[in-house]
Write a protein that binds this DNA or RNA. Structure first.
Lengths: 336, 336
DNA sequence: GCTGGCAGTCGGTATCATCGAGTGCCAGCC
DNA sequence: GGCTGGCACTCGATGATACCGACTGCCAGC
């Protein structure tokens, strides 16, 4: 709905402001290749863009800076994410070539990768454990009245739950329950643990089994998935100039559940980018979040994102997030 | 080595500076109860304290602020940690009364507790897994050429390792290895996994067993213990006024291994408090660290700490750290 | 040996002038 | 009619100046 000239002026302002973090004047814009009009014309156009809410002036005699609406327009007209530039593409390739070890470690370092690629903070939400098959269940006695239930899932994650038993149960009964549960639950989906398993005829054994089944059913799947990996949190300090903002953003990042929900919300709304108040979180009013979900074996699994200031380099961040999410999905798919 | 009057003047300066974060003048000190001399006398004494390196002046016409040596003297003359004040004692009690769930969650929330008690950042290093007994070992096939080895330890932690097999090994062989290892390793100390387990006569089964034993031996115990729980990292933003410092301190906190080593070092040097350069880390020159180790069943297990600015409230922080470490140790002891 | 008093220092704050980046607007040109 | 050069104007940033006040160091006197 903006004519070509206004659009390219707006683009020029956004780009310049992202680089310099300084209000952009009509002179600078007029010099930009692609804007072939005089600064006076640019001034007129910028006045219109301001009245329409795309730009704003910190004070009368200063240049313009983009508003949330301005960034939004910019992001919406970027088009396809575009490829990463050489050095960064190399970093990503190298990372996935070297990546090894447990899932958790890999996701942790993926968050650091995202941070390194963009200079902001990387966030990685692990694959949902909901539709992963159970590969094994084991119950181990820790003390006469406590046992630890350990479930191994097909994605190489391990889930554990400590259980207090209402009475002492002997080791052989616990082992019997362990064997019984292994036989009954191996192969079923994590989200589809049956309400009850067949009885064995022994009351104690069945009590242990029932307790384990109960805890597995009660903790699926949202609770388990509330973890999130944050890499490069220290970048927040350089992203915002007000100490207060830094502190608030860090507080948000400390709350795992909030971050998970935030990413999920943004993805669910079909957005690649949430700018300022679009995040729905007051402390993030000066921030922006670039997200993507990744798929494992064709299923949407988890999501990743980059959190930075609203004046972040969107094309770059979007390219990084897109590339990493694709590679991460591929990687996790091939491992299963 | 300071006479009484100098000592109480120094104490007054430290205390006042901790509260206000402003240079302290002779007038304020003279008003302090316990210092019953005129401001002129205080001035003379402060000049001496400065020449001896306990105090410094930001500029000629300002009050004094403590140097590292000044804080050190203050801390050394506090005496025993002292008890927590009412509200905080209540928080600690309530926390340990409610505390439940897995070890990791508990340590995570302990770090938040420390942060809440002191208004700075809490750090918790988990118990070393070295001298914990293995309660169970299980090997689960994930794909024809990868298996997951899961070891359950007596402290209710679970350790896992993904192994790539050099060739395809059938499920029954993997299960055989699993059973064999469980029988052989259950009961031994994590740090004392034997070099090799007895053979079963089947080459594939033994290959899997050997691989698992190998990885368990190679990863003990320092590697495993490199995790650390950090609570209240956002407090760093309010602890230092230079954004640059905030960023550097956060970077340190992001490196788990560094933090673990740092705490261990400080504890090993027999310190309760490391101030500024005493930490041995340049980015922490303006910071201070209050630490304590906790014991589980009489054995030194892990350590906890509070990281804040050098001008933190030492008596309060030391009381909090002492109380929490004792309660945490008790709690973990009673659970085993 | 302590203290009141005094001169001196120096950062912080307020005031004021200057500078310049940037604006809005208008008359004139294509 | 739309673009542009030019001009008057605004206003934050910068720097000079003065003043205030919180301190200090020092000294004479109790």
């Amino acid at each position: 709905m903006l004519d070509d000239r206004k659009a390219s002026i707006l683009r020029a302002v956004v780009q310049e402001y992202i680089e310099t973090a300084q209000p952009v004047g009509s002179g600078k814009v007029a010099e930009t290749p692609g804007v072939d009009v005089s600064s006076a014309t640019v001034r007129n156009e910028m006045a219109v863009l301001e009245s329409e809410g795309y730009l704003t002036q910190p004070h009368t005699s200063a240049g313009r800076i983009p508003t949330e609406k301005g960034y939004r327009y910019f992001v919406d007209t970027i088009g396809a994410p575009g490829a990463l530039r050489g050095e960064q593409a190399r970093q990503v390739s190298e990372f996935f070539a070297r990546a090894h070890g447990e899932l958790e470690e890999m996701l942790e370092s993926t968050s650091r990768l995202l941070s390194g690629l963009t200079a902001w903070t990387g966030v990685v939400v692990p694959p949902s454990a909901a539709d992963v098959a159970i590969r094994s269940v084991q119950v181990v006695g820790l003390s006469p009245t406590t046992v630890l239930a350990v479930a191994v899932l097909a994605d190489a994650t391990v889930e554990k739950h400590t259980l207090e038993l209402p009475r002492e149960i002997g080791e052989e009964r616990v082992n019997a329950a362990s064997a019984h549960l292994a036989a009954q639950l191996t192969g079923s989906m994590r989200a589809a643990v049956p309400e009850a398993v067949a009885g064995t005829g022994d009351a104690d054994t069945d009590a242990v089994s029932a307790a384990v089944v109960d805890v597995l059913r009660r903790t699926t799947p949202a609770d388990t998935a509330e973890e999130v990996f944050v890499g490069g949190a220290s970048r927040v300090a350089s992203a915002f100039d007000a100490v207060e903002t830094v502190q608030q953003v860090l507080s948000v990042l400390e709350e795992q559940l909030v971050v998970v929900t935030l990413l999920r919300d943004v993805v669910d709304r079909g957005l690649q980018v949430a700018i300022g108040t679009e995040t729905g979180m007051e402390p993030l009013a000066d921030a922006a979040l670039v997200v993507a979900s990744y798929t494992v074996a064709g299923e949407r699994a988890g999501s990743i994102g980059v959190l930075g200031p609203a004046r972040m380099n969107y094309p770059e961040a979007m390219a990084a997030v897109a590339a990493v999410s694709r590679r991460l999905g591929d990687r996790l798919t091939s491992e299963t």
